[in-house]
Design a protein around this nucleic acid. Structure first.
Lengths: 342, 342
DNA sequence: TTGAAAGCGCTAACAT
DNA sequence: ATGTTAGCGCTTTCAA
């Protein structure tokens, strides 16, 4: 078709315009759903598009429109090992589902080494994504602040603290944990242990707080021997359960800060010949709005987490839309002028 | 900075050139590592880049260079539910690791509905990725053929058949299964069952073949009651194990076509009070080059699968490089001229 | 409502 | 070895 071999052979907007007998601007308007097009022109353009099998070139669009139509799902360092846990795959599925009828692309970014984080910071600076979904935030993670500085639309799963300044989607961790433990206490259990998540994560501390509140609310003394640290993994749950059984063989109930850890604990309990829930009652926090009671059976109800993924994506898309609007708007306000020329 | 507010404020190649006192071409050459640059010019450009904090604009690059610097990892329909299995996360980690020091981006594409497949086909046609990694291929999947038609660099994990025409990374499924089952037979077991994968996948059929070869090679009769169909999931493994125990309570060994299914089978065996491996020996196929013997312990060795992911990415990058070269080359040959004008 | 025209920032061909 | 130039395909003013 073309000597240079550079042209891909696919029809361009210009060709569509020619075929439809209109100008390029009109075609662009039709593609982008502008209302300022006559029905007649619109029909002609749509016909031409169909006949030619035209598909807009994303790179050209990104270049001209200064956006990328892509968002990044970032999974930081330590978490890549958790990647196999249902939590992440559910989040991903939810995000994917929400994005399915958008033309946003999902970029998966695993940040293992500091070097990779560095590179990613560059990505962001280069504005190669329109927004960021940040999973599993630890308290000292510098990424949210960077994102905020760059005014990059961002949604966290969980938050760094009570005062989180960035958008997030989170569960009622304190309340859920409290109600779960209250349930165990209501069963008449008196040596209720907990397997926590990594305590540098706010979500984990909240669940521990909920546990404490319930225990103390029942007039019981808080006993550190009943608290074992986990890391949200099944293996962590097993280790913690072993530790608990060793320290307090009389334990008669366990609240695990994650579902997966409850699964690990269950294995160990069975291994040691404990009956669940008769001998030891077990509950795992499911990340849905309330704790899920795993006694008697430990079945999986994953829809809720997937739903969180959907929500994250939805919120992010809104933020992106808003930020675009803002940017456009602020061009007229003194504030942005200041910011732009800074 | 700019009235229209469209400029992002980031330095452009042109500004770098000005600062370095060279032409734009030279800057481009330096960025792209061309050898045709004097050390002096190179140093000046690099200094300017550092001072300005210049980062190339990917969209502009993609538009001008007719490439995207992105590859898609595609996980089809049925598999999204398997997403939580270690297999996928390991593949993803491997791919991610291999891409880490490239500037390729990883697009995650979950294809659940026919509509999503349709959309993805458009993506491909629009050349929005430079290459595709296709996970978990079923025999009747039309995607590989589409990819081939489009001359899109592609690597499959597994293959559709013995005659696979697209690049793939696969294990020695027949041999691995055979050796695993031979091992069980060597232990003196005589009622060796197998839990298969979905039989519309070549990989699953190969493992079943290996099982058969070993059984028949030992002079035993193949008994269909000893074959239970699974789907590579833990739940599938549990169901299959239950079926096997019902049909052949005398089963004294099981070869599961996947690690995860072996895990499920183990749960059921323990539930039913069978001793593993004394009463029933159990082996799961680990997708690394050979089967992993899970008797006595069922430990996870995941590095190999991650390695498969790395390999897939590496091969794909090579294919992409080659295809670029080919395209360039073929511009000179009659063949492409024909193809281009077709 | 619509066409024309000016870029967006870069790569690659061309001419030195 | 290096500067210059012509696009890549689109969005977005600006006129009309």
């Amino acid at each position: 078709m073309v000597i240079g071999g550079r042209r891909s052979g696919r029809p361009t907007l210009e060709e569509v315009a020619a075929r439809a007998g209109v100008g390029r601007g009109t075609v662009s308007r039709v593609i982008n759903g502008s209302p300022r097009v006559s029905d007649h022109a619109k029909a002609a353009v749509e016909a031409a598009i169909a006949e030619l099998g035209y598909v807009p070139n994303r790179a050209a669009r990104a270049l001209a429109g200064n956006r990328t139509d892509a968002i990044a799902l970032v999974i930081p360092e330590a978490e890549t090992r958790l990647f196999a846990e249902p939590y992440f795959s559910d989040i991903i599925r939810g995000v994917g589902a929400e994005l399915a009828d958008t033309d946003m692309q999902l970029l998966l970014t695993l940040l293992r080494t500091p070097k990779e984080r560095q590179r990613f910071a560059q990505y962001l600076t280069a504005h190669r994504v329109d927004g960021v979904l940040l999973a599993s935030v630890h308290e000292d993670d510098p990424l949210p602040d960077l994102l905020e500085q760059l005014e990059m639309p961002t949604v966290l799963s969980g938050r760094r603290s009570d005062l989180e300044s960035v958008s997030y989607v989170d569960s009622d961790n304190v309340g859920g944990a409290r109600s779960a433990v209250a349930h165990l206490l209501g069963l008449g259990r008196r040596s209720v242990a907990t397997i926590t998540g990594p305590l540098d994560m706010y979500v984990a501390r909240c669940r521990l707080d909920g546990y404490r509140q319930a225990v103390e609310g029942a007039g019981l003394l808080h006993d550190n021997a009943l608290v074992a640290a986990g890391d949200f993994t099944e293996e962590g749950g097993r280790a913690a359960m072993r530790a608990l059984l060793e320290r307090r063989p009389d334990v008669d109930a366990v609240f695990a800060a994650s579902d997966v850890m409850a699964g690990g604990a269950l294995q160990v309990l069975r291994e040691k010949g404990r009956r669940v829930p008769d001998d030891v009652a077990l509950i795992g926090f499911d990340d849905s709005a309330i704790a899920r009671h795993t006694d008697p059976p430990l079945t999986s109800v994953r829809q809720p987490i997937e739903e969180m993924g959907r929500t994250m994506a939805r919120v992010l898309l809104e933020e992106i839309a808003a930020s675009t609007a803002t940017r456009r708007h602020v061009v007229l306000s003194t504030e942005l002028v200041r910011r732009e020329s800074a």
